[in-house]
Simulated assay, not measured.
Amino acid sequence: MLHLLVADGNDRAGREKHLSVCDKTSAETYAGVLRSLAPDAVCHLVAPADADAVLPRALTECDALVLTGSTLHVAEGGPTVTRQCDLVRSALAAGLPVFGSCWGVQVAATIAGGRADRNPRGPEYGLARAIRRTDAGEGHPLLSGRPPAWDAPAIHDDAVIAPPPGSTVLAGNDRLDVQAIEIRVGDGVFWGTQYHPELDLDEVAAMLRLSAEGVVEAGLCDDEAAVDAYADALRDLHRDGDGRPDLAWRLGITAEVLSPERRRREIRNFIDHLVRPRRAG
């Protein structure tokens, strides 16, 4: 049996905002995905941004840590950020495998000496397009099974602007150099993606509605009504993907995004190539 600690990157306000458009928190989404990929996994949820958070299971008794996305900004600092940085630092110091998407990557890069801040090339809303491996990413197990180029769910303004010394950037695209990365700190190994392999399209749609003002400001939609229309199309495609080739064609969404098995490759690879071997060892 695997014991996985799932840390929600949001503070209380962020979790409530997320719940206002989704029927679960970011941590609950991740826990569901992890259990679907590893039926023998027990997920222990924690919200480390909270001052009164208590780990439901000691790090030394866990097989891995997973950190979700967040509405917070690493560069702004403060206790809600520091507490999460401390948790990831402690997990890596304990030799745990750590996985994170979006916010998780930014936290890991920061504690290892990199820099996360607003992406000067602009945000990604909905999908990160045409992601490609770097030379260092060729053959790396995190990206095993990915085609030469792929799209993935993504919603972010911030990103890793300067990767930590000694880290390995595994993938990028024209909007961002660091779309996937490996970071080693002591005996601990972090694998992560700036994009969200855990998100279904209905959750992407919900998060776009929350970010409607930013989508319009970025010039990606004329107004919030257009954001809602795009979100509606994503929701409908999620509900009946096989029956709506017209929507997939219109939105430019391929099987790498539509298929849960393909979309979640990095999470499965993390479990199969880092977590299980460590557990067996």
Rank of each mutant, 00 (worst) to 15 (best):
Q84P: 13
G69K: 07
T110D: 13
A93Q: 14
R15T: 15
A58E: 15
L274T: 03
G9M: 09
A152I: 06
E213Y: 02
Y125K: 02
S101A: 15
P164M: 03
V81F: 08
N119S: 13
D63P: 04
C43V: 14
I111W: 00
W249E: 13
V178Q: 03
Y230Q: 06
G281P: 00
A128F: 03
R132W: 05
D52K: 12
P141M: 08
P164S: 10
P245E: 10
P123S: 13
G95A: 08
P277Q: 07
L45E: 09
L247H: 09
G241M: 08
A154I: 04
S70L: 15
R89G: 13
I131Y: 01
V227F: 05
R89K: 14
G69P: 11
Q179I: 08
G243P: 12
L220M: 14
Y125F: 15
G241W: 11
D117M: 06
W103E: 06
A41M: 01
E261C: 07
T193M: 14
D242F: 11
L45D: 07
G126N: 02
S36K: 11
L72A: 13
E198V: 06
H273D: 11
R184D: 10
G172P: 01
T134Y: 13
A94K: 02
R235T: 15
A109F: 02
A27K: 01
H44I: 05
A205Y: 00
G243S: 12
V6M: 10
A13I: 09
G113L: 02
E198H: 06
D200A: 13
T193P: 01
E256L: 03
G69C: 12
R118Q: 08
S144P: 03
A130H: 12
A108H: 06
V185S: 14
T110L: 04
F270P: 04
N10I: 12
N10W: 07
I181D: 01
G192A: 09
V204R: 00
P164Q: 04
G166V: 13
G69L: 12
E124M: 09
L251Y: 01
C62L: 01
D8K: 05
P197K: 05
D272A: 12
D236G: 09
A109R: 01
A94F: 04
S26E: 15
F270H: 07
A136P: 06
Q179S: 07
D11C: 10
G188L: 00
V107Y: 00
T134G: 12
D8F: 04
V33C: 09
E182A: 14
